[in-house]
Amino acid sequence: MHSSAISSSSSAAAAAADAGPLRRLSRRNPTSLDPQSLSFPSGLFPFRLSVNALSYSSSSPRPLSLISLAPRPLRAISDSDGVGETEAAPRRLLRTLQLGILFGLWYLFNIYFNIYDKQVLKVYPFPTTLTTVQLAFGSVFVILMWITNLHKKPKISLSQLVPILPLALVHALGLLFTNMSLGKVAVSFTHTIKAMEPFFTVMLSALFLGEMPTLWVLLSLVPIVGGVGLASLTEASFNWGGFWSAMASNLTYQSRNVLSKKILVEKEESLDNINLYSIITILSLFLMVPLTLFVEGAKFTPAHLQSFGLNLKEIYMRAFLSGLCFHAYQQVSYMILAEISPVTHSIGNCVKRVVVIVASVLFFRTPISPINSLGTGVALAGVFLYSRVKRINSKSS
């Protein structure tokens, strides 16, 4: 009896010693591994790992040291295995293709907007009227889109319109100042100055959102400011009106972005990014009409245009196309922003600016000196560096 007790206690001690490192699993069946402990990062293995491949069956408990991890015989693959992976690959390919098309349309519409805009402003120096006309064409497009159910009409209340109104104001002013700059200086120079958008973003975010920039963000602004200054010194079409108009455009457009973060708009399901921009466009039109009548009067009538010796069909068509392209590239930009991160969107915007500058120089045959090209390149490189720094900061946070 005594020896039996000793044998029993020694067996229990041995079992306790063997099970010491796995004391937390003492209540579980020792003949099966815990599926919760077999989670691996996605993408680590190119095949699906079956938990059953690491299990064994036994009628009696055995120490873990005796468990064999030898591979089990291969079994037939069922129809359900790998279905997610085979379906995900075409889905990812389709999404990449759609994004590529959207980026191409974004760049193409932006190029044509700047070309048609510049052509109109060369012979029709009334940027306030042109801004109103562009917003009017955009508003007509929005209404047709809603009437034809091309996009679902939003259900919005007056309480939702109030916080959107400041966004519409700065949006209208941003387009107005852009047109003023395009009417006075070359398209390439306007977009070189507009490369300073990150500078205004950092400044306004610090002032109104309390988002203090890191040292690396501040360092990335140095080539942006320096490059714009270098390009301005040697710009053949330089004048202060065009320079400050482009700067004001930067300020207003970046104010719109900051206000979008600061103002919390309670959206309904139908008020997505496209509808939000559409409402901003219509409100901007209502704000611009009285300002246009006060500043420039009714300068887009056929009689007034004929007094300038302009071809009515040609000027109306180019004004229509500039407004259509402006609204189209803004809508596509919002569609892209809904699919990717803001930092990736800003990198795409930097590339877009390069494409617009090169296209405008080739189309209008704008004379550019080597120093001017260097300044433009340095400024755009700074914008790209700023985007990369923001991406690193967003990943680390």
Rank of each mutant, 00 (worst) to 15 (best):
H2I: 07
A5K: 07
A5N: 11
S11C: 09
A17C: 04
A17N: 04
A19Y: 13
N29Q: 02
P35H: 04
P35V: 07
G43P: 13
F47C: 09
L54E: 03
S55E: 15
S59R: 00
S59E: 12
S80Q: 13
R95Q: 13
T96Y: 12
L102R: 03
W106C: 07
Y112K: 01
K118Y: 04
L121I: 05
L121S: 05
Y124I: 03
T132P: 02
Q134H: 12
L135G: 03
S139C: 02
P154S: 02
V170F: 06
F177N: 01
T178E: 06
H191C: 00
T192I: 11
F200Q: 01
T201N: 13
G229Q: 04
A231W: 02
L233S: 06
A236W: 07
S237A: 12
G241K: 11
G242M: 12
A248E: 08
S255P: 06
V258S: 05
V258M: 13
V265P: 13
I274R: 11
L276M: 14
L287D: 06
E296W: 07
A303H: 03
H304K: 05
F320Q: 02
L321R: 06
G323W: 01
Q330L: 12
I336R: 03
A338Q: 09
P342N: 01
V343G: 01
G348N: 12
V356Y: 03
V358I: 12
L362M: 10
F364T: 07
P370G: 09
Y386N: 10
K390G: 00
R391F: 09
